[in-house]
Amino acid sequence: MDLLPLYVSAKLAVITTSLLILISAPLAYLLVYGKWPGKFLFEALVNLPIALPPTVIGFYLLYLLGPQGYVGAIWREVFGGTLLFTFSGIVIATAVYNLPFSVQPIKATFEKIDPRLRENAYVLGLSPVATFFRVMIPNSINGIAAAAILVFLHSLGAFGVVLMVGGSISGETRVASIAIYEAVETMNYSEAWLLSLAFLPVSYFLLLLVNRLTRH
């Protein structure tokens, strides 16, 4: 059995999750406590991937990340090369697709924190940024961890958006879910079974962990 797709999937999930938590925590904080015009419009934009089919997101990303797209052009200027059909490209695509699945649980966690803790930090002299790091984050660890696990699982099983942006290049963009699809297409059911089986215990164990984290 070719284990490379499992490795690519795991690498994609770890990098996407790390990237998304770094982006989502401050973003969620701004969405909960920030007061700026057009906030509701921005929040709807962040949540858009929940409503759109992965292939539609993939199609837009194909254009944006391509050599003619804004992101693709900037990438080529800064790093050289292209984003399409590369590992970096599928990381960006998976991150965009998973953004709401990361932001929303963290936002819900921040909303549950007593607002007076934040006010207490302010009257004790802490800036909003210091309050974020010294009060909000330490009191949201479980919620952030639960969000990270959900994003990890989601990224591990990413299919449509990855296929659109990355195709299926072995060792680069051929993730486990694409490998399973291709194995089924070529009637290589034993490989499809084995790859699918690899997902089951990991997903089940991590879901148990999410339940435990959100319960406390």
């Binding site: 007593d114 007076r116 803790l117 006010e119 207490n120 302010y122 009257v123 002299g125 802490l126 800036s127």
Partner: peptide, 14 residues
Amino acid sequence: PQKRNLGYVFQDFT
């Protein structure tokens, strides 16, 4: 609040 150099004790435990 950060620049008022005051102490504030809330009604409930914060």
